[in-house]
Amino acid sequence: WVPDSEAPNCMNCQVKFTFTKRRHHCRACGKVFCGVCCNRKCKLQYLEKEARVCVVCYETIS
């Protein structure tokens, strides 16, 4: 899990986070992404309901 303080930009597209461009943690890899790069949901083994995942993890999992 990457702390918010260590991620000033999206770890995929590099967009800078602001008050309106929020950070989202991928529940699969723990990296920090913008809403566009972390907009998929899928079922993870260790969680009961679907969770937010990044586009890279989504392609790997599904």
Score class of each variant (00 low, 15 high):
R52I: 15
C13A: 02
Y58Q: 04
C54H: 01
K31W: 15
E50I: 10
N39D: 15
V2A: 02
C26Y: 01
L44Q: 11
M11P: 04
T18W: 07
P8V: 09
K41N: 15
N9K: 09
V32G: 05
V2H: 04
V55R: 12
K43I: 08
R27H: 04
G30C: 11
C13D: 02
L47N: 14
R52S: 08
R52Q: 03
V55E: 13
C10E: 01
Q45I: 11
L44N: 03
V55G: 10
H25N: 05
W1H: 02
N39W: 11
L47Q: 13
A28T: 03
E59N: 10
A51M: 07
R40K: 14
A7M: 11
C54V: 00
R27Y: 03
Q45E: 13
L44T: 05
V36A: 07
D4C: 04
D4P: 03
V2Y: 08
F19P: 14
W1M: 15
Q45S: 09
W1D: 00
C57T: 00
K43G: 10
T18C: 14
C13P: 00
C13T: 02
C37Y: 01
K41V: 12
K41P: 10
V36S: 11
Y46Q: 15
C54A: 01
F19A: 15
C37T: 00
L44A: 03
N12E: 13
F17S: 02
R52W: 04
C54Q: 01
D4M: 12
C10H: 02
E59T: 11
H24C: 06
C38N: 02
P8T: 12
G30T: 06
Y58D: 12
Q45L: 07
L47G: 07
R40G: 13
V53H: 07
C57W: 00
M11D: 09
S62H: 05
H24Y: 01
L47P: 14
K49C: 07
A28D: 15
E50W: 04
V15E: 12
G30E: 10
Q45P: 08
W1A: 02
T18D: 04
K16C: 09
V15P: 00
V32H: 04
F33D: 03
Q14F: 06
E59G: 11
K49V: 08
V15M: 08
C57A: 00
S5D: 08
Q45R: 07
Q45G: 09
V15C: 09
C38A: 12
N9W: 13
K31G: 12
Q45M: 08
T60V: 06
